Computed example of a mutant assay.
Amino acid sequence: MFERLENTVALVTGASSGIGRAAALRLAQSGAVVAIVARRADRLEALAAEIRRNGGIVLPIAADITSSDEAIAVVTRITSELGRLDTLINAAGLMLNGPSIESPLSEWDRMIDINLRGLIYVTKAALPHLIDAVASSPRNVADVVNISSVAGRFAAPQVAIYNATKFAVTAATEAWRQEFTRRSVRFSVIEPGATATELFDQKAGQREGFASMFGEVEQMHPQDIAEAVAFIVTNPRRVAINEIVLRPTDQA
């Protein structure tokens, strides 16, 4: 029996596109008030308008969560304006792969900043509020869902730093799960395979490399991953989904 999310508040990072955008729409459909966070304000406003047209309540916040101060400010604003925080979806991500000798350190730093530091900063700021929400929640549980990747399970050439960030996300999620499970804060990680998002367009040449590897694969859609997010957070308190690996049927 899956539960509705009325009277709860969800925060989704990376909500301007891809999995984050799809997750925000799906959580709003399940009844949650949704705070959507990303750097591209125009895209956030377009998503907010869509959620409102469908009868949802949404708070768009343009912010750079790679700044710890901005991450704290985002969570503070959400809890001040919306009164609580029950669900956190860390979906912001960046992939800038390529030969290690030619790849500039600045690209590696950006992946670490967005994929790992941003996730850490938001989670750290959100945790006290998630714990507080459990006591007044109609569901007696709070959730953190971190979007990792199959690259968080298997390393590959020219993917070292992206692998490192996603391995770290998977490991941190499990450690936090163990630390907070007795406080009714569930931590879950989703590790998608090939998904049709803008991820491969973030660096010149990645789309072509992706096509050579997965050209015959029918890719998953962001909505497919959003359904996994909804599956995790709408389960009753007694059920904790710790990890979900999703691949396209055609991906080996």
Rank of each mutant, 00 (worst) to 15 (best):
L246H: 02
I89K: 02
V9G: 03
V189A: 04
S16P: 12
N90S: 09
E174T: 07
L119R: 07
K166C: 02
L25P: 06
I89W: 14
N140G: 13
L130Q: 11
I112V: 10
S184M: 13
M220N: 01
E198M: 03
E45H: 15
V185R: 07
I72C: 06
T197K: 13
V122A: 08
L44E: 10
L127H: 00
T197S: 03
A32W: 03
G83P: 12
F167A: 12
G209S: 02
L5S: 07
V245N: 05
A48P: 14
A10V: 13
S212H: 01
T79M: 06
N7M: 00
I232D: 03
V75P: 06
L47V: 14
L130R: 14
R43D: 06
T87C: 04
R77A: 06
M95K: 06
F187V: 00
A156G: 09
A135N: 13
Y162T: 03
R84V: 09
S148W: 03
T8Q: 15
P104R: 07
I61V: 14
Q178T: 10
L82C: 12
R4W: 10
A196S: 09
G14P: 11
A48H: 11
Q158V: 01
N97R: 09
R26M: 07
E191M: 13
R53W: 13
S137K: 10
I78C: 10
E198A: 10
E102V: 03
I89E: 08
N163V: 11
R247P: 10
E174F: 13
R26F: 00
A230H: 02
R52Q: 15
A171H: 03
V229G: 14
M111C: 05
E45T: 12
A230P: 01
A204Y: 10
G209L: 05
M220T: 04
Q219K: 12
D42W: 05
L5Q: 12
D201G: 02
E174R: 12
G98V: 04
S30H: 06
I65F: 08
V233R: 14
R247S: 05
T79L: 07
A196V: 06
A23P: 03
T170N: 11
A62I: 07
V145H: 05
F2E: 06
T249F: 14
F180M: 11
A38V: 05
F200P: 01
E208F: 04
V74S: 12
T13Y: 09
I57C: 15
G215C: 01
I65G: 00
A155R: 08
A41S: 14
G205S: 05
A211R: 13
T234W: 00
I61G: 08
R26K: 13
E70I: 04
F214A: 11
S184R: 15
A24F: 09
A240S: 15
S137G: 10
I57R: 14
I244V: 15
A46M: 06
A63K: 04
K124D: 08
L47I: 15
P222T: 12
S16N: 02
E179V: 12
T165P: 08
A168F: 11
Q223L: 02
A63C: 07
I51S: 09
P192R: 11
L47R: 15
I112N: 01
V134H: 14
I101S: 08
R186C: 03
V144P: 13
L27E: 04
Q202M: 09
A133W: 08
